[in-house]
Amino acid sequence: MAQITFITGGQRSGKSSFAQKQAEESSAAPVYLATARIWDEDFHQRVKRHQSDRDEQWTTIEEEIEISKHDLSGKTVLLDCITLWLTNIFYENKNDVNASLEIAKQEWDKFINQDMKLFVVSNELGMGVHPENELARKFADLQGWMNQYIASSANEVFLMVSGIPVQVKGISNDD
């Protein structure tokens, strides 16, 4: 079973940087599991920025949906991110929240059934402005429910606030 550290927070809160630092401190050869689907040029530039933050010690695997199909046993893995992974599942399931949530939970359960050290990045969508359209509200619900599901299986949970990690679950390293 995976040892899971779940890192969530708002946009540009420092989630990915914190997760990357934690993974690099845990392993000389971490794996970056990228879930992004490139939708437009702006997003392509965001992906390139993330790629430039990683050096040659990293192995990158790109996987939009089937995260469990990769054998990552014995590895330190940074999955970035749940929001993009859920977007891909939601899109493939024609924006059906219930079907998407069921598929995501099943895939997550298969994925974490490996012996790995896992750092997971996600977004807290429900802490901002209430979405004005139905599709956005449905996705925010999906994201919130999946975050709860992942956090329940995590050993540690951090909420990033303005670049500062606030531990909300797990044993603190402070004595």
Rank of each mutant, 00 (worst) to 15 (best):
residue 31 V to C: 07
residue 41 E to H: 06
residue 93 N to G: 10
residue 28 A to N: 15
residue 93 N to S: 13
residue 56 E to G: 07
residue 151 A to S: 11
residue 129 V to S: 04
residue 5 T to A: 11
residue 64 E to Q: 12
residue 4 I to P: 02
residue 159 L to M: 15
residue 81 C to S: 15
residue 171 I to N: 12
residue 40 D to S: 04
residue 150 I to P: 03
residue 24 E to R: 05
residue 75 K to Q: 15
residue 90 F to I: 07
residue 54 R to D: 07
residue 86 L to F: 03
residue 45 Q to R: 11
residue 121 V to L: 06
residue 167 Q to P: 03
residue 46 R to W: 09
residue 55 D to Q: 01
residue 143 Q to A: 15
residue 96 D to C: 11
residue 82 I to L: 03
residue 59 T to I: 12
residue 66 E to V: 06
residue 8 T to E: 09
residue 140 A to F: 11
residue 41 E to I: 00
residue 41 E to Q: 15
residue 80 D to G: 02
residue 45 Q to S: 14
residue 143 Q to I: 04
residue 122 S to Q: 00
residue 147 N to H: 03
residue 32 Y to W: 15
residue 54 R to K: 06
residue 17 S to E: 15
residue 135 L to V: 08
residue 98 N to T: 13
residue 38 I to P: 02
residue 19 A to N: 13
residue 43 F to N: 10
residue 28 A to Q: 13
residue 141 D to M: 01
residue 109 D to S: 14
residue 25 E to A: 15
residue 77 V to P: 12
residue 162 S to R: 06
residue 123 N to A: 08
residue 167 Q to A: 07
residue 58 W to Y: 11
residue 162 S to D: 06
residue 165 P to Y: 02
residue 66 E to L: 13
residue 114 Q to V: 06
residue 80 D to T: 12
residue 21 K to I: 08
residue 53 D to F: 11
residue 108 W to N: 04
residue 105 K to W: 04
residue 95 N to E: 15
residue 101 L to G: 04
residue 169 K to L: 07
residue 165 P to H: 09
residue 67 I to N: 08
residue 18 F to Q: 05
residue 23 A to W: 03
residue 32 Y to L: 10
residue 100 S to V: 09
residue 167 Q to H: 00
residue 49 R to G: 08
residue 153 S to N: 11
residue 138 K to Q: 14
residue 147 N to A: 10
residue 167 Q to E: 05
